[in-house]
Design a protein around this nucleic acid. Structure first.
Lengths: 234, 234
DNA sequence: TAATCGTCGATTGTCGACAGTTTGATCTTG
DNA sequence: CAAGATCAAACTGTCGACAATCGACGATTA
């Protein structure tokens, strides 16, 4: 008797079906700033545009709702989530709390392989800094932090990170730019990695605090500068 | 020109429609141990049982999937999540990380009203301890911790807590009992509250660590005692 | 003129149906 | 008798349809 299949384990990312694809397209549209915050997401419209029926769209929308990108108003439909300044504070507060812990765990689990991955990612960050491609820069930045969460080895923590990141990506995407000096952001990752390699919990926390806190203040400032969001079209 | 309605804000819990009700019934069935871990959730079956069509069931299932109670296998359906010992560790690790922070924030935001709420909840815990109703005891326990997260004032953190709690409720519900001495658990909440009232971050963290760590070890032990889960029926 | 009411188009919530896949059992074959 | 092929029932993924509800515009009235 062979085991036919391991029916349950963990997430097992839905990549197969339409729902996953619709969700990705929707996420993309939201993060890239089409579908501005506050705008209504008409199921039939999305469905027609993607050449599918409403059912997959609804399920995808529910997914993005749980992820925090959409807000559902019963009998009224889904709307693209709007962020206020205190949302930024909530996200960064939680992110800081989690990433501190993740970094400490990562240090505990660090192997030569994972250490190299982190180092290489910092190199990538420097290379990307020359490209003048803010979106790419943000992406590679997240990849570094995500690596830390991966190495930490707590799958739920990683998922939480992904959720927070997708919210942040949306906000930052709307701001358009992030840092004035992309090389600076690349540099501020180095002491974090150094602390993780050294394995000093206190130093790790301190540098993570500094690094994330820096981004927090920066994003917070930018958000407060452009308070009335890009206009909730339609 | 008046604004017709505030279309977006935050969650706005779906309570209106079928999906919410189906989700609640499903959650209940899972947490209470009907629908044992590993069992298949047949959409049509649930739909017939609840007298609705498959569409709301599917959407509810997707909700529970994101919440971690179900696992989706494309083309095969939804299965009730199975937990292993390391899942317990993940959940408590994350929970500890979050609740430490929540307690510190709660101390910062504490008002006479919220302080009284916490005190009263501890009283309730003591009262419930006499009832010999483990499920109720667990519920009131969570209500205390949830209060702390509420007072902390970070909505995302509260949601994370709820998600983790629903997973834990499921596990604990399957274990059947939690503590041998329900009064002891009630007592261990008191120093936590005392530390919050005193407002000493270090002491708060220490007592939260002790309290949650205690539960962690206890639940971990029980889970390891009953490794092969209650049989994945059908 | 300003506010209220009623009507109409647009959109959501829900349903039943159909095709393709998976599952488990039966049959075949070495 | 065991291992693989075959087949039927069950189930999922997706679709189009219909009723209920919402939002906006215009008519009515004080």
């Amino acid at each position: 008797m062979r085991t036919i299949s391991p029916p349950v384990g963990l997430p097992a990312l839905n990549e197969t079906d339409l729902v996953g694809q619709v969700a990705r397209r929707l996420t993309e549209a939201i993060v890239l700033g089409r579908l501005p915050p506050g705008s209504k997401v008409v199921e039939a419209g999305i469905a027609r545009e993607l050449g599918v029926s409403r059912a997959p769209v609804r399920e995808a929308a529910r997914l993005l709702e749980q992820q925090g990108l959409l807000v559902a108003n019963p009998r009224r439909g889904f709307f693209v989530r709007q962020f206020a300044a205190d949302d930024i504070d909530e996200i960064y507060d939680l992110r800081l709390c989690v990433e501190r812990h993740a970094a400490v765990l990562a240090a505990r689990n660090l192997t030569p392989e994972t250490r190299d991955k982190l180092r290489r990612q910092i190199e990538v960050l420097h290379e990307t800094a020359d490209l003048d491609d803010p979106a790419r820069q943000v992406e590679e930045d997240y990849r570094f932090h995500r690596l830390i969460c991966e190495i930490a080895g707590n799958r739920r923590m990683l998922r939480l990170f992904d959720d927070l990141a997708s919210e942040l990506r949306m906000v930052i995407g709307l701001i358009g730019r992030l840092y004035d000096d992309p090389h600076e952001i690349a540099r501020t990752h180095e002491p974090v990695l150094a602390a993780i390699e050294a394995g000093h919990p206190e130093r790790i926390v301190a540098y993570v605090d500094y690094h994330i806190g820096h981004a927090w203040r920066e994003v917070g400032r930018l958000v407060r500068e452009i308070p009335p969001w890009p206009a909730a079209a339609k």
